[in-house]
Write a protein that binds this DNA or RNA. Structure first.
Length: 219
DNA sequence: CACCAGGCAAGTA
DNA sequence: TACTTGCATGGT
């Protein structure tokens, strides 16, 4: 079976087993982007508390957050962990938004993916996963998101080496899949859900993985 | 109690 | 270039 059909079969079996995901949670594209930074190495539950704090303080908008002091911002996002670090990263992202599009996120979507992605990666505190999450889930651009679960699920099934770098895993999908925003969106969400249930870090086995039907190496 | 969560950057050798 | 460490809260 070629890689395209393999990936499409994986997708189909995950969707059948788990149902659609409705990702990414967030009321606005800006809120999604903020969540992408806050969730770095952090449980989503804690991110929700931080976002709730921002909403309660009525600063969950680009210009509002830009005017807020970094110290106050840090205090509001404290539940998300790494709060001083992430306050700085949010400030860097806001500075980028001001310069690049005058705080108007939707204006970014008029740029090519190949143009915008490197610009995001230049922002201090935005690495590949955060950049792709913003591109895909906030801006609806077809950039496949790779995270720890993605690598874990694929390597446990012996589809990629365990130490495969980010860009290689991303290409594993993007080289053969059509640049379909809805497909990339749901695919990443399903991989995370499969990872959470069947590819935990310490506990590898929690029953048969829904991908087993199509893969040589069942777990 | 130990371990982990939808990473990234900076430092070391 | 290839590791290692700092960043920090909250749930299991």
């Amino acid at each position: 079976m070629n890689r395209l059909n393999l990936l499409l079969n994986m997708y189909g079996s995950m969707l059948k087993a788990l149902g659609p995901s409705s990702w990414w949670p967030g009321e606005t594209p800006f809120e999604v982007a903020v969540g992408a930074i806050l969730t770095q190495n952090t449980n989503w539950q804690n991110v929700e508390k931080a976002i709730a704090n921002l909403r309660r303080a009525k600063v969950l908008a680009p210009q509002k957050l830009y005017r807020l002091s970094e110290e106050s911002l840090a205090e509001l996002i404290r539940p998300a962990g790494f709060f001083r670090l992430k306050a700085g990263r949010l400030k860097h992202f806001l500075e980028f938004l001001k310069d690049e599009c005058g705080f108007e996120l939707s204006a970014l979507a008029s740029q090519d993916l190949e143009t915008l992605r490197p610009k995001l990666l230049d922002v201090k505190g935005i690495g590949p996963e955060t950049a792709d999450s913003i591109l895909l889930y906030a801006l609806n651009m077809p950039s496949f998101v790779v995270d720890a679960y993605t690598g874990r699920v694929l390597s446990r099934h012996a589809l990629i080496p365990e130490d495969a770098p980010y860009e290689e895993i991303r290409s594993f999908f993007m080289d053969v899949l059509n640049p379909d925003t809805n497909l990339y969106n749901e695919y990443h969400a399903l991989l995370v859900r499969v990872g959470k249930n069947w590819c935990k870090k310490k506990k590898p086995l929690c029953g048969p993985c829904p991908l087993n039907a199509y893969l040589e190496d069942p777990i």
